[in-house]
Amino acid sequence: MRIGRNLLVTLQGDLEDATVEQIERVVTGEVARTQARGMLIDISGLTLVDSFVARVIARLVGMVRLLGAETTLVGMQPAVAITLVELGVSMKHVHTALNAEQGMARLAGLRDDRLY
């Protein structure tokens, strides 16, 4: 979904590896096509993030950054966050926010910083 110059991507449920990789390809293409400046990935409906899913999300964020758009990951479930930390996945290069509202505010703030 597109909101202004931002793309909103919603991930839900428990995704197969192939689906995750397909989403990665489609979203990267969409960012290029729409020349989006920001992307919000809402994972509040994602019940499982294992090392594979985390790796693909981090890779997607990296690719989208090369296309000139910043990403904020929002809505991670507490159980998923605890699990990722114990698993050893830091996702330290990925910006996160508690919810979509804060995520949008962050993306807006990033663009303002660039203007001045």
Partner: peptide, 26 residues
């Protein structure tokens, strides 16, 4: 996940088990 629910595991314990299982199955 279904077995975790049936055994009454909390959401965090269940999520950890399912994630560990996903890693090992992979």
């Amino acid at each position: 996940r279904a077995e975790s629910q049936a055994a009454g595991l909390g959401l965090t314990a269940a999520t950890k088990l399912v994630t560990a299982g996903s890693e090992l199955a992979r």
